[in-house]
């Protein structure tokens, strides 16, 4: 089914893999979803810098700087998204890092628009396909450049 021949020079020219920092912000132990997303983005040809659980806005800012990330994926299942995500936006602005934030996890419909208004690039709900997840990340990056 799959042609297992690696393509010619997969990394050459302008075809540089996107680098995405994935993290769970704050106290939130549900990391099954973010691990699936890590795999989805890897399989979409991206480099995933996986930070995992219990990250702070500061630790994410540091990682984004040092890793020169193109995007941040935040996974949120603790109902703190309305506070934490805008905090993340602020922290990035303060550090002058023009990097889009994509939030995934459990976000009630009514909260989506306010999150976007607060500067989050996209919100991905449950049920999004692998292709959709990768496309949303790519679009968010191209929109921010």
């Amino acid at each position: 089914m799959v042609d297992r021949t690696p393509s010619k020079e997969p990394m050459s020219g302008g075809d540089v893999p996107l680098r995405v920092v994935l993290a769970k912000l704050g106290l939130d132990g549900h990391d099954r979803g973010i691990k699936v997303v890590a795999r989805i983005l890897r399989d979409a040809g991206m480099e995933v810098i996986y930070l995992g659980l219990r990250q702070t806005t500061d630790s994410i800012v540091t990682a984004v700087m040092e890793e020169d990330a193109d995007a941040i994926g935040l996974s949120m299942h603790n109902a703190g998204h309305m506070t934490l995500a805008p905090n993340m936006v602020k922290a990035l602005r303060q550090a002058e890092l023009p990097v889009p934030i994509i939030v995934g996890g459990i976000v009630p419909k009514d909260d989506v628009q306010p999150m976007l208004d607060a500067g989050v690039a996209a919100v991905i709900g449950p049920g999004a396909s692998a292709e959709e997840v990768a496309a949303i990340v790519r679009d968010a990056v191209s929109a921010s450049v």
């Binding site: 690696p6 890897r42 399989d43 995933v48 996986y50 995992g52």
Partner: peptide, 13 residues
């Protein structure tokens, strides 16, 4: 990954 060029960089954690 030699197939997709993607990677999971999990050392920082």
């Amino acid at each position: 990954s030699p197939l997709t060029g993607g990677a999971i960089l999990g050392d920082r954690i």
